[in-house]
Computed example of a mutant assay.
Amino acid sequence: MRATLMYGAGDVRIENVPDSRIKNPTDALVRITASCICGSDLHPYHSMDAAAAPARMGHEFIGVVEEVGSDVVTVKKGDLVVSPFAISDNVCEICKENLQTSCLHHEAGFWDGIPDEGGQAEAVRVPLADGTLVKLPVAADSTLMPSLLTLSDVFGTGYHAAVAGGVKAGSSVTVIGDGAVGLLAVLSAKRLGAEQIILMGRHQVRTDLGREFGATGVVSARGEEGIAQVRDLTGGHGTHVVLEAVGYMAAYEQALGVVRRGGVISRVGVPQYEDAPIGFGSLFRHNIRLAGGPAPVRAYIDELMPDILDGKIDPGKVFDATTDLDGVPAGYRDMDQRTALKVLITP
């Protein structure tokens, strides 16, 4: 079968690899019908050490179950399923608290920790299939496929940012980052009833989509100028919640600058720094809370899916380019150069 491998910074290839197969009784074998490139995939694309190569890529996918292990009971051959970006048994003590990204099972973890498997491929072995996979009540050729694919990561991550930040009816919210996660954090804040949603982003095509998703204002400036503009839009106070969807220190510092006293900074951008100021001069003095983390998207799929099926929301609009496997290396380049927001991969 064919799959995506990264050999180092900027070096993505499509190669023939051994077919994925069932190894454990809790596995399922899934033929992938839709996957995508994630913004977080660009971190190794920028900096991966060739000594660690090659690495299989991809953690967001929908597919058809081809085979199941003897212990699998919740899905069967022929089912169309979506997979979260984290593997979990969904029944341990921590999963029951809706923190599937911290599942206690020894086979759990993120897709980049599963040797020789990845979602940007023709097929994949899914460990802990009963807890990880969610059956979809549509056909593989449904026009809803792009939006349903966002349940595997990007929509659930944006939603987690809003939930962890405590967004509720009447909240004021700043979203930092106009990537797919940031835009779906806007949609999530709107869904939870936020009254004011300020999107900090510099790419008009993206911020226009942010307005469509519910942003009430856009600030394109960064640094102190951007902070001042957000403060002006909020009567000088900043917003109750800041959803940081970038992961760089500059974004965290911007979040500190625009959060309201007593507010919450919720981070879901994978941090590309080791330390962040949390002491008296930043968070402690004004009772600012820090929340967020890897999104347990499995906890949100059942809640968010009905709105997609009913056509109430269309998170799939974040996909602005489509390719097959052969076009994946160019898709990485296009997302890196910001000529594409998020690339959908189809057979």
Score class of each variant (00 low, 15 high):
Ala221His: 06
Gly201Trp: 04
Ser142Glu: 01
Ala50Arg: 12
Pro54Tyr: 05
Ser102Glu: 05
Val205Lys: 14
Asp130Lys: 06
Ile32Cys: 13
Lys190Tyr: 03
Tyr252Trp: 08
His46Ala: 10
Thr4Val: 10
Ala121His: 14
Gly247Val: 00
Ala180Gly: 09
Gly279Tyr: 06
His160Ser: 10
Arg298Pro: 05
Gln100Leu: 13
Glu60Ala: 11
Gly327Trp: 11
Ala169Asp: 03
Asp141Val: 07
Leu344Phe: 12
Pro315Thr: 02
Ile62Leu: 08
Glu122Cys: 12
Gly311Asn: 11
Lys135Asp: 02
Trp111Asp: 02
Gly235Asn: 04
Cys38Leu: 02
Ile197Val: 03
Leu29Pro: 12
Phe280Gly: 09
Leu304Phe: 05
Asp153Leu: 04
Gly235Lys: 02
Asp19Trp: 01
Ser20Gly: 13
Lys76Asp: 06
Asp302Tyr: 08
Ile301Cys: 10
Thr132His: 12
Val230Gln: 08
Leu148Cys: 01
Leu341Val: 03
Leu344Trp: 05
Asp27Ala: 10
Leu99Trp: 14
Ala55Phe: 10
Asp130Gln: 07
Val65His: 02
Phe110Trp: 05
Ile94Gln: 09
Ile14Cys: 08
Phe284Ala: 13
Ala162Val: 00
Ile197His: 01
Phe61Lys: 06
Asp320Lys: 13
Trp111Lys: 11
Pro277Val: 03
Gly166Lys: 05
His237Thr: 10
Leu304Met: 04
Ile345Phe: 05
Thr339Gln: 14
Leu184Asp: 08
Thr157His: 04
Val64Asn: 02
Gly263Gln: 13
Pro84Lys: 07
Asp320Ala: 09
Thr323Lys: 00
Leu290His: 14
Thr157Gln: 04
Gly165Asn: 02
Arg13Glu: 01
Ser188His: 09
Ile22His: 11
Ala221Glu: 11
His203Arg: 15
